[in-house]
Design a protein around this nucleic acid. Structure first.
Lengths: 220, 220
DNA sequence: GTGGAACCTGACACGGGTGTCAGGTTTTCC
DNA sequence: GGAAAACCTGACACCCGTGTCAGGTTCCAC
């Protein structure tokens, strides 16, 4: 108990090295396992094995399996914001959105486990996401939605619902990491390569940008 | 053992009524539970409870929990084809794709549990999908990809990779059913209504169709 | 209405997963 | 270099989920 308080209260004192290193190891192992086999399909013994620590040692740092899961989520939420950095009024929508697509795809390619973990949590109805975490997601999205609205107001973009538009971007970019098994099947590949991700970016950019960023046309 | 053979061998004799009814109940209960809580998170006892049958009775029809899971998959795969029915060379791409989006969204709205179950299976790397089932998905997709290629050849559609294009359509339409929790959060709603699905269809159709179905433009 | 197949069920064996505990070892800081 | 805190660990208790079994009931065809 005392150690937990110490670690959490540490507004000035940094987290002890060993502690930080081991928690890091555990979390890294856990995110992959949870992504592959879900919460109930993953056993603490496996997490321990994958992080090179005895099971009891894992319990020294985390009181329950659930607390490991929660810690993984906490770490991921922090990354949510970064994806949106490109969406700013100063940029042209075409450039900004293209950059967003590339960045998002690249991120989910390189952090496939994290991506799948998160997707799975949402799929389950976001049961573990805390109220404040959901609020955070809402806030960040709303903020960027205003940017899109501004673009539309200025006539730089076709009038689409910004939230649905974001959802569309998110789903398309997530897909290749989350549903890699299916995507590979459909593309008749054994595994997805960097080239496949590039082709995906190309298709997406073409379809989405040419679809909503040419204000002069109103073909419907 | 004999009963299983009887039921499977029945090329002429139909499956006995009680058997058919009970298996149906079990499968219906199972798909929702598996979707909500994953394979390992779902207990046979719960499936039994949800289908109004004692647990032992469930085991009378299915030898293992895994066999229930496999049966659910088998039932779902059959539905894969139907979504693609709209994609035929005879139609104009614009109409066909719009119809596909509407049909797919409507289906995932009404069968959210099935949809989430399937998404989760893919997320896990499609570990339970049999070889022939994966082959089936590949075949059906390849067939419809040819339709798109034909449209492109005729100049009715912008030159995009048909498989990536399908993936984009699939991910966008799936999203609202699979990630309903997040979508509702982002849209600041408690639950997604029919109207939200309509708005989603509107946004998607607008972005995708105006993006790739106007052959005269080549703005890049 | 009777025999056999199909159907149903409570009780229970068994394995394995979570989390504990008591007692060790290492690190850290004076 | 010595004490206290942090760190580590094997053994084990306990629960609960899967799947079995033996014996009962209902259905159906003749």
């Amino acid at each position: 108990m005392t150690r937990t308080m110490r670690a959490k209260a540490g507004s000035d004192a940094p987290e002890p090295r060993i502690r930080a290193r081991n928690k890091e190891r555990i979390l890294n192992a856990a995110v992959t396992l949870f992504a592959d086999k879900s919460f109930h399909g993953t056993h603490v013994k496996e997490i321990a094995l994958a992080s090179g620590l005895p099971k009891t040692n894992v319990y020294y740092y985390f009181p329950t399996k659930e607390s490991i899961y929660a810690a993984v989520i906490e770490r991921l939420i922090a990354g949510w914001d970064r994806a949106f950095e490109h969406i700013v009024t100063e940029r042209e929508p075409r450039d900004a959105i293209a950059a967003y697509i590339r960045a998002k795809l690249e991120y989910s390619r390189r952090h496939a486990a994290e991506s799948r973990f998160f997707a799975n949590e949402i799929l389950r109805g976001a049961q573990f996401l805390e109220r404040r975490q959901r609020q955070h997601i809402r806030d960040v999205t709303a903020q960027r939605a205003h940017v899109v609205e501004e673009w539309i107001r200025r006539g730089q973009m076709a009038p689409v619902d910004p939230r649905h538009f974001f959802i569309m971007l998110w789903s398309a970019t997530q897909f290749y990491a989350d549903f890699g098994a299916l995507a590979a099947d459909v593309l008749e590949k054994r595994r997805l390569t960097r080239k496949d991700f590039d082709a995906a970016a190309e298709t997406m950019t073409r379809v989405i940008l040419d679809g909503c960023c040419t204000p002069s046309r109103r073909s419907r």
